[in-house]
């Protein structure tokens, strides 16, 4: 667990205390004014758009990969050549395709989903909230 230095904006009228002298992240307000209440109807309204994509508080980004799950064999050679894709790794029924030159991956996924042997084709994401403990 390594805490990175973190700049904390201090209010001149607010008293701050050190919760744990060894952990800059734990510097916390000891006597603060709660300036907004997030519970109740206001919260739901204010956060509706976000909550649809809240991802449980994770920071999610796409990776440029497509994760394909197959049932049976698929000849990816011609498909990949057409879409400028490469198979970067595979395991069992799962194949990971990656674009070589900024191909529209959503369009590729639509085409993959039309193939009878393709059980699923999804845009791969990474959870950037995963970090060292």
């Amino acid at each position: 667990m390594k805490y990175l230095p973190l700049a904390i904006a201090l209010l001149s009228t607010t008293a701050f205390a050190q919760q744990n002298t060894n952990n800059v992240n734990s510097t916390a307000p000891a006597d603060i004014e709660i300036n907004k209440t997030l519970s109740g109807d206001d919260v739901k309204e204010a956060n509706a758009d976000f909550l649809l994509n809240a991802d449980h508080g994770a920071l999610i980004k796409t990776t440029g990969e497509i994760l394909v799950k197959l049932e049976g064999n698929v000849d990816f050679d011609s498909f990949n050549e057409k879409h400028h894709l490469t198979i970067t790794q595979a395991y069992g029924a799962f194949y990971i395709l990656k674009s070589e030159n900024g191909t529209d991956l959503n369009q590729v996924i639509e085409e993959l989903q039309l193939m009878p042997q393709v059980l699923s084709a999804t845009l791969a994401t990474a959870n950037m909230s995963i970090e060292a403990n």
């Binding site: 449980h56 395991y91 069992g92 959870n127």
Partner: peptide, 27 residues
Amino acid sequence: QSYGWTPNSPLVHDYAADPSLEMNDTV
């Protein structure tokens, strides 16, 4: 694996919605 994250709400365990979860568990 000295890493992880802390969700702010319970996660949904759904292989259909998250095929990478199924792949990782399988591996």
